[in-house]
Amino acid sequence: MGIGLGIFLVVVGAVLRFGITADVQGIDLAAIGVILMLAGIAVVVLTLILMMLRSGRETEERLPGDDRRV
């Protein structure tokens, strides 16, 4: 879910930055677009780091009534 959210933020930010040419008084759409793109990239990077850290752990499972580890 994290990667999807990051990609969504990057796409919305890119649309705001490059796709919309309207001027809204008091709001800089280009700056908001850049902020959303950076946030999306950060979400994707953090999600990938967490996925790598989780995959490095060894899991231990115990079978019911058995003391052996699988």
Rank of each mutant, 00 (worst) to 15 (best):
Thr21Phe: 01
Arg62Lys: 15
Leu36Ala: 13
Gln25His: 14
Glu60Pro: 00
Thr47Ile: 04
Glu58Lys: 15
Ala31Pro: 01
Val12Asn: 03
Val44Gly: 01
Arg57Cys: 05
Ala31Val: 10
Ala30Lys: 13
Val15Ala: 07
Ala14Ile: 01
Val12His: 00
Ser55Leu: 14
Gly56Thr: 08
Gly65Cys: 02
Glu60Ser: 10
Leu36Phe: 14
Val12Gln: 06
Leu63Lys: 15
Ala30His: 10
Leu46His: 08
Met37Tyr: 00
Ala22Phe: 07
Leu16Trp: 03
Asp66Met: 06
Leu53Pro: 01
Asp67Arg: 14
Glu58Val: 14
Gly56Lys: 14
Leu63Tyr: 11
Ile49Ala: 15
Phe18His: 12
Val43Thr: 13
Met1Arg: 02
Gly56Tyr: 05
Gly56Val: 07
Leu16Phe: 13
Leu16Glu: 03
Ile41Gly: 04
Leu53Thr: 10
Glu60Tyr: 09
Glu58Ile: 14
Arg17Asn: 11
Leu9Asp: 00
Ala22Val: 13
Gly33His: 06
Arg69Val: 13
Ser55Glu: 15
Gly13His: 05
Gly19Lys: 04
Val45Asp: 04
Leu53Val: 15
Asp67Tyr: 11
Ile20Met: 11
Ile41Glu: 02
Gly2Trp: 02
Leu38Gln: 06
Ala39Lys: 00
Ile27His: 09
Gly65Ser: 04
Gln25Phe: 15
Gly65Asp: 04
Val15Met: 06
Asp28Tyr: 05
Gly33Ser: 09
Glu61Gln: 12
Asp28Arg: 12
Val15Tyr: 05
Thr59Ala: 13
Asp66Phe: 06
Leu5Glu: 08
Ala14Glu: 08
Gly2Pro: 04
Val12Lys: 04
Pro64Gln: 02
Val12Trp: 02
Leu50Pro: 00
Val12Thr: 04
Leu16Ser: 05
Val43Tyr: 03
Gly26Tyr: 09
Ile49Met: 15
Ala31Trp: 04
Pro64Leu: 06
Arg69Glu: 07
Leu48Lys: 07
Arg68His: 09
Met52Ile: 15
Gly65Asn: 10
Ala22Glu: 10
Arg68Met: 05
Arg54Val: 07
